[in-house]
């Protein structure tokens, strides 16, 4: 990573840290800010799977549910401390992801989309009737997180837990994608046969990608559970509709980029809020659909790298601009 990039990330983190107390947002908006970051974690996980490993998932809403209910169960019933429950939720969801990844080994493209869609629907159905675990229609009340005796009661205080976790996960992800695992995933995405010839165990990495992606989503699920005061399996965040929104986040923000995942998540979390005052109830959904189609049609050779290419262009533009300035000064 070069210095410029470092600095821009640090500036971003500073902004993310300082903005909420400065703006002093009302609860409902601070809630959305918390939610944006939680969804950003999901989007990063989904991007690892789709953007880097080239696999498709239409079932991430279900992973979110698995993480959320695991965490709720661990803290409420087994009285496990929040942070341990958080990690365990990630791990258990990761295992579920590996299990889903196994049948996925034999599938590609459209078939994988169908299978993961089926998974998404199935998990919601199972959770709806598994009332001893989920509380069913009457729901459950996940506890507010507690650490060293401090209770994170407000959305603002909880925001910082989520922010720190997001930063940690972004760093870990960044390290993963620029080393062996990341290269293997991308190689497999670009040419499975060449990847095999280069010694990449494609089955292993596909399963790993599912597990890793589910791990992130499980962490986000745990955070989501403790953000909500009250949770039922019918929550929109667990539905296929939300799985499509997750997909839209990375398509809009940029498939195959971490920063794109975050930007996409923020846009997709606030879009419904912004359009909620307009008379057309489902407008945000219509807009989302239209945008992702536009992105694809605009980049017919595969949006998978549209984000990276666009960034490239900007950087080149910027570089040229700089050169010109240098030239001018020299003259």
């Amino acid at each position: 990573m070069n210095a410029k990039k470092y600095i821009s990330w640090i500036v971003l983190i500073l902004i993310a840290t300082l903005i909420p107390p400065i703006l002093n947002l009302p609860g409902s908006l601070q809630y959305l800010l918390d939610l944006s970051l939680i969804y950003a974690i999901v989007a990063i996980g989904l991007n690892l799977l789709m953007g880097y490993a080239g696999q498709i998932s239409l079932g991430h809403g279900a992973f979110l549910a698995v993480g959320a209910y695991t965490s709720a169960y661990l803290t409420l019933t087994l009285h496990v401390p929040f942070f341990i429950a958080l990690i365990l939720s990630g791990l258990i969801t990761g295992i579920v992801g590996i299990l889903l990844g196994l049948p996925a080994l034999k599938l590609e493209g459209n078939y994988l989309a169908i299978a993961t869609l089926g998974f998404g629907v199935a998990v919601t159905q199972i959770f709806a009737i598994w009332t001893s675990f989920t509380g069913g229609f009457s729901g459950i009340k996940p506890l507010k997180p507690e650490l060293f005796g401090f209770k994170f009661n407000s959305y603002l205080s909880y925001y910082y837990i989520i922010l720190i976790l997001t930063i940690v996960l972004v760093i870990l992800t960044w390290n993963i994608i620029r080393t062996k695992v990341g290269r293997s995933l991308m190689a497999m995405r670009d040419s499975e046969i060449a990847a095999k010839a280069m010694g990449i165990n494609v089955s292993y990495y596909k399963t790993l990608a599912f597990g890793l992606s589910a791990f992130y989503t499980g962490i986000a699920g745990s955070l989501y559970a403790h953000l909500l005061g009250f949770m039922t399996p019918y929550d929109y965040a667990f539905s296929i509709g939300m799985s499509l929104n997750f997909l839209a986040m990375i398509v809009i923000g940029g498939i195959g980029t971490i920063s794109g995942s975050i930007i996409g998540a923020i846009i997709m979390t606030w879009l419904p809020q912004i359009t909620s005052n307009l008379p057309i109830k489902s407008l945000s959904q219509i807009i989302t659909g239209a945008i992702i189609i536009a992105v694809v049609i605009f980049y017919p050779n595969g949006i998978a790298y549209a984000g990276a290419r666009l960034k490239d262009k900007f950087e080149k533009l910027f570089a040229k601009h700089q050169e010109k300035i240098v030239v001018k000064i020299e003259k």
Partner: peptide
């Protein structure tokens, strides 16, 4: 993937 996303977008619209 692109075609898939377009039909998913249509689904939403």
């Amino acid at each position: 993937l692109s075609l898939l996303i377009v039909t998913l977008g249509l689904m939403m619209i």
